[in-house]
């Protein structure tokens, strides 16, 4: 499905690390460290991003309009120095498109009996 609003690049490709960051932000607005923790937690420690890598990813996602820095401050008890990031509608569409693509790949792999366990989609 083509995006309704124009994105900087048509069907921008996603690196796996970028996809994980988008997935992390699909749940809630997060600050840098929380993104690192979220990605590590959700992938069972398989994907570990460093601050330097995350910096590059966030910059790229910000420049491409897939995430924005949240303007309003989060809850009062939180550290106000932190910068929070939020998925944009475009970012959500791009992440969804990537998820669909992966789903098709998985379905293909399953049909070739490369996956032992089958799960309902």
């Amino acid at each position: 499905m083509p995006p309704k609003t124009p994105v900087p690049e048509p069907n921008p490709p996603l690196t796996p690390a970028m996809f994980h960051v988008l997935l992390a932000l699909a749940g809630d607005d997060l600050h840098g460290y929380a993104i690192l923790k979220e990605v590590e937690l959700r992938t069972g420690g398989e994907v570990k991003l460093s601050t330097g890598t995350l910096y590059g990813i966030i910059k790229r996602l910000l420049n491409d309009g897939l995430v924005i820095e949240r303007r309003e401050r989060p809850a009062a008890h939180d550290d106000e120095r932190r910068r929070y990031y939020r998925l944009t509608p475009q970012g959500r569409e791009v992440a969804a498109a990537e998820a669909e693509r992966l789903e098709k790949v998985v379905a293909l792999a399953r049909s070739r009996h490369l996956l032992k366990r089958t799960q309902p989609a």
Binding site: H31, G32, Y33, Y55, G56, K59, L62, I68
Partner: peptide, 16 residues
């Protein structure tokens, strides 16, 4: 450089 001063690009910070 990832950023240069006054480039207006959104920033990234993290704890250390």
């Amino acid at each position: 450089a990832g950023d240069f001063p006054l480039d207006k690009s959104p920033a990234f910070n993290n704890q250390y």
